[in-house]
Amino acid sequence: MELVALFISAILINNFVLHYFLGICPFLGVSKKIDSAFSMGLAVTFVMTITAVITWVINHWILLPNNLEYLQIVSFILVIASLVQLVEMFIRKVSPPLYQAMGIYLPLITTNCAIMGLALLAALKNYSFVETVVFGVGSGIGFTLAIILMAGIREQLDLSDVPEPLKGAGIALIVAGIMALAFLGFSGMIK
């Protein structure tokens, strides 16, 4: 039951983009078309899940038992950077169609604060292994949901008459603000 609550709250209430402001760069950068937004979301969800598992193992088996928690930042960022490289090579070998779909987005993920944020938040909140995995998958889905919704709105926005200064980032941020407002309605649904 608590896991279900954690999962739903990671998607809707504590949405990575709209509540924690993590992953704003891809959220604004890759949200012009629904297909590319979907691929980006897929890639992020995938990497997030693996990151959640690996950083948990590093944190709980290596860092914490040896009182090395001050190495968290360095080790997490290095693990994420090399992980993304490995995933990219692996997917290119195993599934070329999947690589076609999300390959070009993978390198962008290394400096994506959403992935690092996930590792840090899971460590900060002291989640158990299962909780960390559920949190990782849920957060990835939450990111995908937000970026696809954003892309849908922006496709419509292309056809409308936006004032010159607001074009691009300005209107995108205001749309995100209105989405965040709508998502506020989900808070309190889990008691």
Partner: peptide, 9 residues
């Protein structure tokens, strides 16, 4: 959060 997005926009 919405205030942050809208103000920055």
């Amino acid at each position: 959060p919405p205030g942050a997005f809208i103000t920055l926009g």
